[in-house]
């Protein structure tokens, strides 16, 4: 019946929210579970504001970017998938809710989710504290590394954010 009074700051939407994104670093947190798994992972980004960090053994960590975490505001609920789960690129492998928004987290790649971050379920606030480190959502054994070529690197992602910031 009604038009509601909520921010449409979905991850999947071209968010109109933060003007201040330029001050964020959408890079992995040093000395986090993601970086300590192996040296120099390849980091890529999606238009839905997910990041993926792929290690040499084709194990990848997936989460949401700092930009996205800020757009969400205080995270109140996180859902992750049971493991192991086969996933295709663009399939939902979790969801994240805040008082402003609720979104699915989509797998950037095809593969098998071999581990999910259960700690997030108990402490959703981690998404805001450390979105690109402790708040990884899923660990995926990727099956088609070529898919990474379709994703953005850090520079392209920053440019993408600028372009979509009205």
């Amino acid at each position: 019946m009604l038009r509601t009074a909520f921010a449409r700051s979905s991850l999947a939407m071209r968010s109109r929210v933060p003007m201040a994104f330029r001050f964020y670093s959408n890079n992995l947190t040093p000395d986090s579970p993601v970086t300590s798994y192996g040296a120099d992972p390849t980091v890529r980004y999606t238009e839905n504001h997910e990041w993926i960090a792929v290690h040499k053994d084709n194990v990848a960590f997936v989460g949401i970017t700092k930009y996205a975490a800020d757009a969400l505001g205080d995270t109140t609920f996180v859902e992750v998938v049971e493991t192991p789960t086969e996933t295709e690129a663009q399939e939902s492998i979790g969801s994240v809710e805040s008082v402003k928004s609720a979104s699915d987290l989509y797998s950037p790649v095809t593969g098998t989710v071999i581990e999910a971050n259960e700690e997030l379920v108990n402490s959703p606030g981690l998404v805001n504290e450390d979105p690109m480190g402790k708040a990884w959502f899923a660990k995926i054994q990727i099956s088609n590394p070529a898919e990474l070529d379709q994703l953005m690197d850090s520079d392209k992602y920053e440019a993408f954010l600028k372009e979509n910031d009205h």
Binding site: A12, V99, A102
Partner: peptide, 20 residues
């Protein structure tokens, strides 16, 4: 409570268009 789960945000990913 939990006002953000459905169509307001999720759009075509929503499983319901219940808005009222």
């Amino acid at each position: 409570a939990l006002q953000t789960r459905e169509q307001h945000i999720r759009r075509e990913k929503a499983t319901s268009n219940i808005c009222t």
